[in-house]
């Protein structure tokens, strides 16, 4: 299987895979040194093919484009730089005052977010985090589904609730990272249910997050993020 996937790098670089193979390959290649080198390699070659087709666009395209980007927000930079920034700021704001959420407000927020998802039974461990007096909740933003982390320092635990996550691929899983002054810490490895939902509880181990992020990793887990950041939430 892996061998088959290796042979898809060229077709992938030409966008010549169908939807399901593309997804499968995209789940594989970032963690495969040979495939990722081949993909960049073939993409450079493809760019040269593209250069054989250069055609000047109509002159007014630039004006319309420049007007549009003036009102288009740029995406946040990727994790490595981001981690440094966040770690830096965390250090500066070490004794930062934590915003306390009222238990009732947390419950309302969580239930509101859950929507159609199954709400935890009362007395459930998850509930202890969700209704903790110091529970904080943070939506993660990005390109893959919806996710929200609720955590409680007093409980020393976090709950990740997510929906609309796609299958991470064969041999792959999602990993949740708690980003603090020391950088990203692997906090939990998970695969969504068949309907794309996730509801798991994780230990904070006494750490205090500056941000949360989710990447796609080998299902054995990684010490440091290797995949692209898919979802991230930064604590204001």
């Amino acid at each position: 299987m892996t061998n088959d996937l290796h042979h898809l790098a060229a077709a992938y670089a030409l966008d010549a895979l169908d939807e399901s193979e593309r997804r499968e390959f995209e789940a594989h290649y970032p963690s495969c040194a040979i495939c990722s080198a081949e993909v960049s390699d073939y993409r450079e070659t493809a760019a040269l093919l593209a250069e054989s087709a250069t055609t000047s666009p109509p002159a007014d395209l630039k004006d319309r484009l420049m007007a549009e980007i003036g009102s288009t927000r740029q995406i946040a930079p990727i994790l490595p730089d981001r981690v440094v920034d966040l770690a830096e700021r965390k250090r500066r704001n070490a004794p930062r005052q934590r915003v306390l959420a009222l238990a009732a407000a947390a419950v309302v927020a969580v239930v509101g977010f859950l929507g159609g998802l199954q709400v935890a039974r009362s007395g459930d461990d998850l509930d202890d985090v969700l209704v903790a007096v110091d529970a904080e909740t943070l939506p993660l933003e990005g390109t893959a589904g919806n996710a929200r982390v609720v955590w409680s320092p007093s409980e020393d635990r976090a709950v990740l609730i997510a929906s609309d996550l796609s299958d991470p691929g064969t041999g792959r899983a999602y990993e949740l990272w708690l980003i603090d002054a020391g950088g990203p810490n692997a906090t939990g490895l998970f695969r969504p249910d068949a309907d794309g939902t996730v509801r798991i509880q994780l230990d904070l181990d006494g750490r205090s997050p500056a941000a949360w992020g989710i990447t796609n990793e080998p299902d054995t887990g990684s010490d440091q993020p290797t995949g692209e950041i898919l979802l991230i939430g930064e604590i204001a």
Partner: peptide, 9 residues
């Protein structure tokens, strides 16, 4: 821009 427009076209 000629690269982008060209390949898209």
């Amino acid at each position: 821009s000629a690269l982008v427009y060209g390949i898209v076209l």
